[in-house]
Simulated scan of single mutants.
Amino acid sequence: MRNRMFVFYLLLMLTLMSCSKTEIGFNGQVYLYLSEPEVNRYPVEKGDSIVVKGFNSWTIGDEHKGMLPDSVVRDSGYDKSYVYYICAVTAEFKMNEEDFIIMYADQNTKLGYSFPDMGYIGVSNTVKDYDSLDDSFVMNTYLIYISQEKDGKKMDIWYPCSPFDLEWHCFSFKDIDVKSKEDK
């Protein structure tokens, strides 16, 4: 069984390498995939609309066997028993000094789930090193990769979308004083 899993991961890595500019690292049982997202800023009144396509990294977690999480079954219709993985996907981009950024998702946004419990589709985000000149906005989402049905029938399904199809939407407000009253 262990040899089959190794072959599966090796084939998955080779497939992804042939399809993109992806570097692959191995860390114990978790695979880490690195890429560079495309970040576009579109000026609008008092800010920028920011669209980030792709991702910086994603990791495949442990193998799961059985039914998918309830919300995924409800949303996707995949209601059998599967071999699947929950993948954490991250996109990060450099903020401008004056940025105050919020995430938003409309019906055209391609995202995964907000948390690994797969409760609802969305994104979680943080600002990295907020007090430094090297501010980055970091967004996380979670995807399901179904590799096979429990009876052994091979599958290759990403849900709700492939990490290569992710599209993150943000809005950057300009000239907003984000300092607290204590800082004044």
Rank of each mutant, 00 (worst) to 15 (best):
V138H: 04
F6C: 11
G152I: 08
K53I: 09
D131A: 13
L143D: 05
T59I: 10
I60Y: 06
E97Y: 09
M139V: 14
S162N: 14
E182N: 08
K184H: 07
G25Q: 11
T59R: 06
L32F: 05
K110P: 00
P69A: 11
G61R: 04
F55R: 08
D48M: 08
T15P: 00
Q29P: 07
Y130I: 08
G61H: 04
V127K: 09
K53T: 15
R4Y: 10
N40T: 15
G77W: 09
Q29I: 10
M103I: 13
D62E: 12
L16H: 13
S71E: 12
K154R: 10
G28P: 13
Y85P: 01
Y120R: 12
V51G: 04
K53Q: 09
G122V: 08
K128A: 14
Y113N: 09
F171S: 02
G61C: 09
G77I: 06
E98M: 13
E45N: 11
S71H: 03
S49W: 13
G152W: 10
I60M: 15
A91R: 01
L133H: 13
S35G: 02
E98H: 12
E63Y: 09
K128E: 15
K46E: 11
M13E: 14
D131N: 14
E36F: 04
N27L: 03
F93E: 02
L68W: 05
D131P: 03
T141D: 03
Q107C: 11
V127Y: 06
R4S: 15
V83T: 08
L11G: 07
G47K: 07
D156R: 10
K174T: 13
Y42V: 09
E63M: 14
E45V: 07
E92I: 07
L12C: 04
M103V: 13
V127N: 02
M139D: 05
N125F: 13
G61M: 04
L14M: 13
G54F: 08
G77K: 03
S71W: 03
P43G: 02
I60P: 01
Y113Q: 06
T59E: 14
E149Y: 07
P37K: 10
Q29V: 09
I146Y: 01
G25V: 11
C87K: 04
D62M: 00
L16A: 01
G119F: 07
D117L: 07
I146H: 06
C170A: 15
K184G: 05
K181P: 03
V178D: 01
N140V: 02
F100S: 08
S124E: 12
